[in-house]
Amino acid sequence: MSNTFIGLKQEDTQALAQQLNELLANYQIFYMNVRGFHWNIKGERFFELHVKFEELYNDLLLKVDEIAERVLTLGHQPEHAFSDYLALSTIKEAKNISDGREAVQSIVEGMTLLVTRQRTVLAAAADADDEGTAALMSDYISQQEKALWMYRSYLGS
């Protein structure tokens, strides 16, 4: 069994790249959902949520790039066609949502799914001695756990 240029087993990087590509697909769909919430939000909380959604989608866009670059670092190709994202993503498209509570509920559901998937990637990265992927997932999880608490608090749950 051969190692990659970063010293990881080829079979481990293949499995991690697949998991990261699935995560990337979920991030891309989630990103587009949040962009739509930002564009279409209406109501008395418009100003507050419009800004909050923009903060979130800017953060998601950075993470999309980091995940794709991690796949490349592992020696594999990131998915980059939207049709592939739709096929691989567990997060579904959220269309025509303009109600703030409904948008925040969708964000909570999507982010919960991301955290769960990232824990799976984190465990696989640890098993493969892939500190780079593990550190990335650990950072995302800790950031998103706090964000989830805040979004859930907004909903009163």
Rank of each mutant, 00 (worst) to 15 (best):
E79P: 08
H76T: 10
D99W: 12
E93H: 10
E22H: 15
L88Q: 14
H38A: 00
S106I: 08
S2W: 07
Y140S: 09
L16C: 03
F37H: 08
R119P: 02
L16D: 03
K63D: 13
E66Y: 11
A126H: 07
V104E: 01
Q19M: 12
Q143W: 08
A81Q: 14
T112I: 02
K63W: 10
S142F: 10
L88G: 09
N26A: 02
Q18K: 14
S2F: 02
A17W: 00
K95T: 08
E69L: 02
Q118N: 09
L24C: 06
T116A: 15
D130S: 07
G75E: 08
V121C: 00
Q28R: 04
Q144R: 09
A17F: 08
K92E: 08
V121S: 03
L122N: 03
D99V: 03
E145S: 06
I67T: 04
A135H: 11
A103L: 08
N58P: 04
Y140D: 02
G75C: 05
D127V: 01
W149R: 01
F5A: 12
D127L: 09
V115H: 04
E48V: 13
I91F: 12
L88T: 07
L72T: 14
I6H: 13
A25P: 09
A17P: 00
A134G: 12
E131L: 14
L148W: 02
E48C: 06
L23C: 05
H76Q: 13
A17H: 01
E66Q: 14
F53Q: 04
I97H: 02
N26S: 05
